[in-house]
Amino acid sequence: MHAANEIFDWVADVLKQQFQIREEFLRPDARLVDDLDLDSVDAIDLSIRLEEKTGLSFKEEDLKAIETIQDIVDFVHERL
């Protein structure tokens, strides 16, 4: 899972399966809180899933800097 588009597909899949986000909202520039209605509990769950999948660890300040789906993709892509 190194190519950016693979990372995006995986994140989109988690958002769909686990957070009931509808397919049409899953665009790279979709904002997690404002557009996709994720809350603080969701942020924790999402970071746990990402940590399990990538082995990366997400610190609180990393999570704060993430605003859109693309931000997650970039974060993972830069570190893997």
């Binding site: 399966q17 686990q18 957070f19 009931q20 509990v41």
Partner: peptide, 8 residues
């Protein structure tokens, strides 16, 4: 069901 989905 994962808790995020269940809460929804």
């Amino acid at each position: 069901e994962p808790r995020a989905s269940a809460a929804r």
